[in-house]
Design a protein around this nucleic acid. Sequence first.
DNA 1: GTAACCAGCCGCAAT
DNA 2: ATTGCGGTTGGTTAC
Lengths: 219, 219
Amino acid sequence: MRLVIATCEVVYEGRLSARLPRAKRLLLVKADGSLSVHADDRAYKPLNWMSPPCTTEEGDGRWVVRNAKGETLTVTIEQVHLDVDHELGAEPGLEKDGVELELQALLADHPEAIEPGLALVTRERETGIGPVDLLCHAADGSFVAVEVKRRGEIDGVEQLTRYLEVLAGDNRIRPLRGVLAAQRVTPQARRLAAGRGIGWVEVDIDRLRGLEPAIPTLF
Amino acid sequence: MRLVIATCEVVYEGRLSARLPRAKRLLLVKADGSLSVHADDRAYKPLNWMSPPCTTEEGDGRWVVRNAKGETLTVTIEQVHLDVDHELGAEPGLEKDGVELELQALLADHPEAIEPGLALVTRERETGIGPVDLLCHAADGSFVAVEVKRRGEIDGVEQLTRYLEVLAGDNRIRPLRGVLAAQRVTPQARRLAAGRGIGWVEVDIDRLRGLEPAIPTLF
DNA sequence: GTAACCAGCCGCAAT
DNA sequence: ATTGCGGTTGGTTAC
C-alpha cells in the first residue's frame, strides 16, 4: 500500500466527467491496483477513484490510471509532501453478523412473531425473478409470502409485489397474500402496501433474539 | 489527516457486529473525525469505519470511536509501523457532469428522440411522492410521463408505475401513459414494463449530444 | 456475462 | 428528521 500526500489536480473521464482543481490530497494506491483520491472530509468516500482491475502509467508528475472500459483517472502532481510504501500482507478477513440475514433466520424460527399461527413452509423460495425471503402458511389456510427488511421502505413493497405477481400463478400455494416484516416500516411504505393489499409488521429483533426456537417447519 | 499503519484488531458494534482479527492495516483519520480501516484490497472500501459525527477516545493502545447512536468501533493496536499527520487544508470541491442529469436535459431538449412528435410540457413535475423526470404531450393527444435512467432496470419501471398511479388522478393530463427512457433497458425491465402497459426506449446519448436544441417547450 | 438484490450502503435534496 | 432517489454506487449470487 502506497500513501502519497500531494498537491495535485485530478480529472476523471468515464461514466461521468469530473474535475478536481489543484489542492493537497491523499492518494491511496492499494496492492489491487486501485487508486483513491481523498480529501480531509467525506468520511470514507474518496473524491475520485479507479477500481481494479486497472493499470497505472506513471511518469513526469502525471499518473494515468485506466481500466478495460477506457475510463481514465489522471492525476497531475505538482508537489509531493509524503510518499511511503508499506507491505500489509494478507487480510485474514472480515467476520460479519448481518442484520437482514439474522432477522430472516430469527423470523424463520419464529414466524408467529409476524402473525399468530403462522408456520414456515420454506426460506428463499425461488420465484423466477428472485427468491422470496419466507413462504409461510397461515392459520386461516392461506399462504403468506414474507419480505424481510431491516428497514421497510417502498422498494420492499415493490419487490414483494413482483414476487406475488409471479407466485399468484402457482395454484399449489393458494390463496396467497404478502407481508412486509421489518424493524421499522415507513409511512410511505405502509400506504403503498395498503393500496396493494399487502400487510406489514414491525418486529423487535432484540425480543426475537431472546426467544428459543419454537415452531418446527411444515416441510 | 492522520495516517497510521498498525498491527491491530478491530471490533464494530452497531447496525451489525463485525470483527477483524489481528493484522497490519491502514487507519485513516480525517479532519471530520471519521475513521476508516483499510486493507490492501477492496478498492476504496474500508473494512470497517465510523462516519462523522463521532468522537474518538484514544489511550493505552486502544481507540474507541463512538457516534450518537451508541455504535462503537474499537481498535486495539499492537504495533505501530507509521504514524503521520498532515494538514490538507480546504477542498476546493468536486465538479461533476452527471449522466442521468445530462441525459434528462438532452431529452428535455429533444423529446422527439423518445417518440416522434413528442413535446415537452415540464421537467421534474411533482407528483406528491417524488418528481417525474419529464412530462410530455404526444402527437396522439395523450400525455406521457417519462422516467429517465442511465440504465433501465426493474426499479425504474416500479418508480414510473408509482408516479402513474398518482398522476392518473389528475384529469388535466389525461389520457396518460408512461415511457422508460434509458441508454440500455434490461430484458426483465422490458417484460415488466410490457405487463404494466409502460413503453420503453433506448436512447443514444452521443447522438443526442450532437443535436441542436430543436423543439421549444409547450408551457 | 447478465441481472437482481443487499449494503453498517453514502450523500443529496425536498418535505 | 424523514424519505425518496441517484451513485463512476460496490459486491455477491443465481441464472
